[in-house]
Amino acid sequence: MKTKYDYIILGAGASGLMLAYRMSNDSYFDDKSILIIDKEKDKGNDRTWCYWEEGNGEWDDLSARSWTKVFFGSHSFSKTIPIEPYSYKLIKSEQFYKTLWKRIESKPNFTFVQDSVDSFTELKNVVHVITGKANYFGLKLFNSSLNPVVYNLQDKYPLIHQHFVGWYVRTKEDSFDSSTATFMDFTVSQKGNTRFMYVLPMDKKTALFEYTLFSKNLLDNSEYEREIVRYLRDKNIMDYEIVEKEMGNIPMTSFKFSNLNSEHILNIGTAGGWTKASTGYTFKNTSEKTKQLIEFLKQESDLTKFHKKSKFSFYDLIFLDVLANHNAEGAGIFSSMFKKADIRTIFKFLDEDSSLLEDLKIVRAVPPKRFLQAFLKRLFK
Score class of each variant (00 low, 15 high):
N221I: 14
D316Y: 03
N267D: 10
I9F: 01
D351K: 00
K289S: 12
L218A: 13
G44R: 08
K377D: 03
A271Q: 11
G192Q: 01
G132H: 11
H161N: 15
F380A: 09
S175Y: 07
D302R: 07
S301F: 03
H326R: 11
M247Q: 13
S74I: 03
T212F: 09
K377N: 10
E84T: 15
R65M: 06
Y281D: 02
S335A: 15
H264K: 15
G13P: 07
Y28L: 00
F183A: 08
E358K: 11
L159V: 10
Y88K: 01
G248Q: 11
K98V: 09
G166N: 06
D177G: 02
N327M: 05
V165F: 13
V129K: 04
F319W: 12
K43N: 04
I294T: 11
E295A: 09
M238N: 13
T345V: 14
Q95N: 14
F112W: 04
F96D: 00
A271D: 10
K305V: 10
S354Q: 00
D185V: 03
F196P: 06
F371E: 03
T286Q: 03
N135A: 11
A277T: 05
K245T: 14
I237Q: 02
S145M: 15
K235P: 01
Q154M: 11
E300F: 07
G44W: 09
Y28K: 09
R378C: 06
L293P: 02
G11F: 05
A20L: 04
N249G: 10
T275V: 11
S144E: 04
F112E: 00
L17I: 05
L320A: 00
S335R: 03
H264S: 13
F312N: 05
G332Y: 10
E105V: 01
K32G: 09
S119T: 10
I83C: 03
K140D: 08
T182D: 09
E352S: 14
D31R: 04
K79I: 02
